[in-house]
Amino acid sequence: MSGLRDLRDDGDIFDAADDDAAEAANKAGGVADALAWECLRAALPAELRRRIRRGDPVAVIVQAPGAEWCGLLTRVLRRDSARVICVSRDGSSRREHDPAKGNDEVALGLAGGRSVIGVSQDPQLYLPSALLSAADVRISVAPPDANILRRLLRKHARGKAPAESPDGAALGLTFAETVSAFRSP
């Protein structure tokens, strides 16, 4: 289906309470999923989550901080129900990650009343052109800020979390480097 996948699983990011991020991170599974979950929730406006939860067909472009984030963000989005179709393209397949591919699926999904979410570090270069044209909302997921890092450290690391920690962007770490800094309690 050209990189488009129905999102079916438990743990719906769109149904999670806005003020319950710690529980959402716990539901997400390991540190990598929890990190992607927290960063995505920080970027998704509450109104957009409500629209998707209501079943409004919304076209959303999610710009990932880098190619290595695309799969993780998509995995978190897959926790949603059948309301959402996800397109994840990081450029790893020249043939499949072409803007001319997947346009029919995007059009049929939106016309059929489903939300379509595209995830890429370079949406203009890789996502289907129909999704780019139809986009209702464009969001950018940022690397974890200090609050997200502290929350994850308390939940997923050994020892005492530092009172202060810099933003993830200030550390200059990749997603994998950030996740590998955690050690299970």
Results as ranks from 00 to 15, higher is better:
residue 163 A to N: 06
residue 119 V to R: 01
residue 96 E to S: 13
residue 120 S to P: 09
residue 99 P to G: 10
residue 89 R to W: 06
residue 84 V to H: 00
residue 89 R to P: 08
residue 148 I to G: 01
residue 140 S to I: 00
residue 141 V to C: 02
residue 148 I to C: 07
residue 163 A to G: 02
residue 141 V to T: 04
residue 144 P to I: 05
residue 130 A to W: 01
residue 159 G to V: 08
residue 91 G to P: 01
residue 118 G to C: 06
residue 145 D to H: 06
residue 91 G to S: 07
residue 140 S to M: 02
residue 84 V to Y: 00
residue 76 V to F: 10
residue 101 K to F: 03
residue 119 V to M: 04
residue 114 R to K: 14
residue 107 A to R: 14
residue 89 R to Y: 10
residue 135 A to K: 01
residue 142 A to L: 10
residue 142 A to G: 03
residue 129 S to Y: 07
residue 109 G to I: 05
residue 75 R to V: 01
residue 70 C to M: 02
residue 150 R to E: 07
residue 158 R to C: 05
residue 159 G to K: 02
residue 128 P to E: 09
residue 70 C to H: 01
residue 87 V to W: 00
residue 145 D to G: 14
residue 132 L to E: 11
residue 157 A to M: 04
residue 93 S to E: 03
residue 112 G to I: 05
residue 132 L to P: 01
residue 168 G to Q: 09
residue 121 Q to V: 03
residue 90 D to W: 09
residue 127 L to P: 11
residue 157 A to I: 01
residue 166 P to R: 10
residue 169 A to T: 05
residue 144 P to W: 00
residue 151 R to A: 15
residue 132 L to W: 04
residue 95 R to F: 11
residue 170 A to P: 00
residue 115 S to N: 11
residue 104 D to W: 02
residue 166 P to D: 15
residue 111 A to V: 02
residue 112 G to Q: 10
residue 162 P to C: 08
residue 144 P to N: 03
residue 158 R to E: 12
residue 108 L to F: 08
residue 94 R to V: 10
residue 147 N to H: 07
residue 120 S to W: 02
residue 166 P to W: 03
residue 120 S to C: 09
residue 107 A to K: 13
residue 83 R to P: 07
residue 103 N to Y: 00
residue 102 G to R: 02
residue 165 S to G: 03
residue 121 Q to Y: 08
residue 145 D to Q: 06
residue 151 R to N: 10
residue 105 E to G: 07
residue 99 P to K: 06
residue 143 P to A: 15
residue 77 L to T: 09
residue 146 A to L: 02
residue 103 N to I: 06
residue 101 K to C: 11
residue 81 S to K: 03
residue 93 S to N: 09
residue 71 G to D: 15
residue 85 I to D: 00
residue 124 Q to H: 05
residue 155 K to R: 11
residue 83 R to F: 08
residue 143 P to S: 15
residue 164 E to V: 15
residue 108 L to A: 10
residue 77 L to K: 09
residue 152 L to P: 13
residue 114 R to C: 12
residue 137 V to N: 07
residue 90 D to F: 04
residue 167 D to L: 05
residue 153 L to K: 10
residue 86 C to N: 11
residue 170 A to K: 11
residue 142 A to K: 13
residue 135 A to T: 01
residue 159 G to H: 05
residue 97 H to Y: 05
residue 94 R to C: 01
residue 76 V to T: 15
residue 77 L to P: 12
residue 82 A to K: 13
residue 160 K to D: 13
residue 139 I to P: 04
residue 104 D to C: 00
residue 150 R to L: 14
residue 78 R to E: 15
residue 115 S to Q: 10
residue 155 K to V: 02
residue 123 P to R: 06
residue 128 P to V: 09
residue 81 S to E: 06
residue 145 D to C: 09
residue 102 G to P: 07
residue 76 V to W: 08
residue 154 R to E: 09
residue 154 R to T: 04
residue 159 G to D: 13
residue 100 A to Q: 12
residue 156 H to W: 03
residue 161 A to G: 04
residue 166 P to I: 07
residue 73 L to W: 03
residue 150 R to N: 11
residue 117 I to P: 04
residue 85 I to A: 12
residue 96 E to I: 00
residue 170 A to R: 06
residue 158 R to K: 12
residue 156 H to E: 01
residue 90 D to Q: 08
residue 169 A to L: 09
residue 81 S to F: 00
residue 111 A to T: 11
residue 83 R to W: 04
residue 72 L to F: 09
residue 115 S to L: 10
residue 72 L to T: 08
residue 75 R to T: 14
residue 128 P to M: 09
